[in-house]
């Protein structure tokens, strides 16, 4: 009576789940403003002046300063605000619990959300970059490979923070609140509101290790063709690892 074949959900289940998560994200129109529209706005406001100011290696201030900042806003807002608010909602609403009694594990929803938010980041960065290149003559990074690697590491670091937010937030609303506070705090010490030179030195240094500042500075170096500071890369890797460990310990499924 007990000879039941255990069949894990296959590629079709994964594809359907990812498609469903994508629909959830797209239908949450308000959630698309910060990662897609806000970065575009910030770029459009700064691009024309910055595009004419040459900095290094034929790259303008638009390439070296504005684009890294805009891309970082995309990655941070998706990783720290949007993704955790979905997970907190799923937990609160009982979606994760419901999936726990199907052959699909609730962990599949986590993975599907990662995949969809990654796609969202590609769209956000792609849109901003396309406008920068077509409308304002932005140039690609001097070290493209390094820039891509930094983006990959930044995604891991932002998700690390996001998973901590999803783990500690008791409700979906508090996840948005904690995510927003985290996003603006990291942004404030990482140069979102102007250069970090005006910050007290220890704060500015801390900000350059935390994911926002580290991503901005590492991308900036990749665009300029200068070596990426090891402290930024180590900071990003640490955020990813610490976030993963904390979330593994604290994340609740119901």
């Amino acid at each position: 009576m007990s000879e039941v074949t255990v069949r894990r959900p296959g590629p079709r289940a994964w594809a359907t789940l990812i498609r469903c998560e994508a629909k959830m994200v797209v239908r949450d129109t308000a959630g698309l403003v910060v990662p897609i529209a806000l970065p575009l706005l910030i770029m459009a406001m700064n691009a024309s002046a910055a595009g004419e100011e040459m900095v290094v290696n034929g790259r303008s201030a638009l390439d070296v300063h504005v684009l890294p900042l805009v891309f970082t806003i995309v990655l941070a807002s998706i990783g720290i605000i949007n993704m955790p608010s979905f997970l907190a909602y799923y937990r609160r609403a009982g979606v994760l619990r419901r999936l726990a009694v199907t052959p699909a594990s609730p962990a599949m929803v986590l993975v599907a959300q990662f995949v969809v938010s990654l796609a969202q980041a590609v769209v956000g960065i792609g849109a901003a970059y396309a406008v920068a290149v077509l409308a304002f003559g932005a140039l690609p990074p001097v070290d493209t490979g390094v820039a891509l690697a930094v983006v990959g590491l930044a995604v891991a670091a932002m998700y690390g923070w996001g998973m901590v937010v999803a783990s500690v937030a008791p409700t979906p609303n508090s996840a948005v609140a904690i995510g927003l506070i985290g996003f603006f705090a990291l942004g404030a010490v990482g140069g979102m509101f102007g250069g970090t030179a005006v910050l007290p030195e220890p704060v500015a240094r801390l900000g350059s290790w935390l994911p926002f500042g580290a991503t901005v500075e590492a991308l900036s170096a990749a665009w300029a063709g200068s070596p990426v500071g090891a402290s930024h890369l180590v900071g990003l890797a640490l955020s990813a690892v610490v976030g993963a460990v904390v979330a593994t310990i604290l994340f609740r499924w119901d």
Partner: peptide, 28 residues
Amino acid sequence: QVLGVQLQQTHLHHALTVAELVDLYRAF
């Protein structure tokens, strides 16, 4: 594989349609 459960006060993906939810659970 062999147990079907309707939980008390469960909510599903709120922005998905009935057909989409049925397709999702069928895929499992």
